[in-house]
Structures are given as structure tokens and as C-alpha cells.
Computed example of a mutant assay.
Amino acid sequence: MLIVIPAHNEQDTIQDVICDLNEYGFYDILVVDDASTDDTAKLAKAKGVKVMSLPYNLGAWKATQAGVRYANEQGYNGLITFDADKQHQASQLALLLKHQEASAANLVIGSCPSRGSFSRRVAWSMFRFLSGVKVTDLTSGLRLYDRNAIQVLSRQEASLLEYQDVGVLLMLKTFNISKSEIYVEMKKRESGISRIFYSWWAVIYYMGYTTMLCLSKIAKKAHLLSN
């Protein structure tokens, strides 16, 4: 099982995150350094993990997909995406692994709805309604993908997506990738900023982009039904 950690300017937390994973027996770790301007890559390498340094900033999802493609090329049967800001806890990964074994789902999402603000929960409800994707915590980056899901998300089409939430889930749904969800504990962010909710302009862009994805999916489904 490969652990993929997308990281952009996470020098304050990256070593703690790696130590946390090591403590729970996870040593096969790939840090995807998303063109950090600090010592993220250097500090990760010092902990003995694999580091993939991107030449320029691609954003959290595309950095994650770089790790997914690496897993696909190396023949991994599974990977877990794990945030670099200390919100995700290695102690919770056993829950994902056991749930995947019991459910045989291609994708298991570690959900923590309580971490969302009121406005975020409203957005989640709207996107669930528009997309038909029944996931409580749509923006959770704590996910376990099996071999089938890895292959789908390594495709060129996945490179066109901006975020690892509704778009990725819609794409996986299109390819009949099964999903399940299990509740996990998460901590509050200790440093850095949210990649989506760091400014009103970012929120507006995210809301507009994701709404258009949902509406295009609805339009496509309506077109197919009419033919």
C-alpha cells in the first residue's frame, strides 16, 4: 500500500506527518512536492521517503494524480492519499483498510463531516443534490483507492480536473468504480491554508467550477435519456 502525500510549502508539518505514518507501520510513502518554495522536499527526503518534485505548481489534485500515476506505473494494488497539514491521522488508516476488505469497494473515503463549517456543509448538500454523488464529506482527501480506481484516475481525462472531490467522484462513477465511506477522526489544520477556502475568490471559483461540472453531468444524462 502506497501512501501519497501532495505537499506545497508544508515544511512546518511534513516531518511530523511522516513520523506519524511510520509509527503506525506505514513506510512506503511518496511525497509529491508541488513546486514548494520552502524546505518541504528537503525535509521529506531527510526522513527517508520517496519524493517527486514537480517543476511548477499544479495544485493539490494534479499533484495527487502524479502520485496516482506513479502507483499505476509501479504496479501498486492500492494507495492512500494523505494530507500534509496534520489533519489526517495515521491511527485512522486501519479503519479504511478494514472497511475496504469488508466492503470490497474500489474507493473508501475517510469522512469527518464535523470539520466543515456551516457554509461548507451547505455547499456539500447542494453538490450532492446536483451530482447524485452520495458522499457525506465531499472534500475529504483521505481516500483509499484500489487497483481499478488507480487505473481510472491515471487516465488523461482525470488531468482535466481541478479538485479531488466532486469531479473525481463523478469520473469514478462513470467508470463504475464502487465507493464506500467510513467516519474517521481528523484534527484541525495546524499551519498553512485551505487550498479551496483560503479566500472568497477561491471559494467563488470552486463553487462555480464544481456547479458547472454537476450541471454538465445532468445535461449529458438528460441527452442520453432522450435518445
Score class of each variant (00 low, 15 high):
80 I>A: 07
81 T>G: 04
81 T>D: 10
82 F>E: 01
83 D>R: 03
85 D>V: 11
86 K>R: 13
87 Q>W: 04
89 Q>R: 15
89 Q>I: 15
90 A>M: 05
91 S>E: 10
92 Q>A: 07
92 Q>G: 02
93 L>N: 03
93 L>V: 08
94 A>G: 08
95 L>C: 06
95 L>Y: 09
96 L>C: 06
96 L>F: 05
96 L>R: 07
97 L>A: 12
97 L>G: 02
98 K>W: 04
98 K>R: 12
99 H>F: 15
100 Q>E: 12
103 S>A: 10
104 A>G: 00
104 A>M: 05
105 A>P: 11
106 N>C: 12
106 N>L: 07
106 N>T: 07
108 V>F: 09
109 I>L: 12
110 G>C: 11
110 G>K: 13
111 S>Y: 06
111 S>Q: 14
112 C>M: 07
112 C>Q: 09
113 P>N: 11
113 P>D: 08
114 S>G: 01
115 R>P: 03
115 R>S: 13
116 G>P: 00
116 G>I: 00
117 S>Y: 05
117 S>L: 12
118 F>D: 10
118 F>W: 05
119 S>N: 13
119 S>T: 12
121 R>V: 00
122 V>L: 15
122 V>E: 12
123 A>M: 14
125 S>I: 02
126 M>L: 15
129 F>Y: 15
129 F>P: 00
130 L>W: 11
131 S>C: 01
131 S>A: 06
131 S>F: 04
131 S>N: 02
132 G>Q: 08
132 G>L: 07
133 V>I: 15
133 V>P: 03
134 K>V: 07
135 V>F: 01
136 T>S: 14
136 T>I: 14
136 T>W: 01
137 D>R: 01
138 L>F: 05
139 T>P: 00
142 L>S: 03
142 L>V: 08
143 R>N: 11
144 L>Y: 14
144 L>S: 06
144 L>E: 01
145 Y>R: 01
145 Y>W: 13
146 D>R: 08
146 D>N: 15
146 D>M: 09
147 R>L: 09
147 R>N: 05
147 R>T: 04
147 R>C: 08
148 N>F: 06
149 A>T: 12
149 A>M: 10
150 I>P: 06
152 V>L: 06
152 V>C: 00
152 V>Y: 01
152 V>F: 01
153 L>W: 09
154 S>Q: 08
155 R>Q: 15
155 R>P: 00
155 R>M: 14
155 R>G: 12
155 R>C: 09
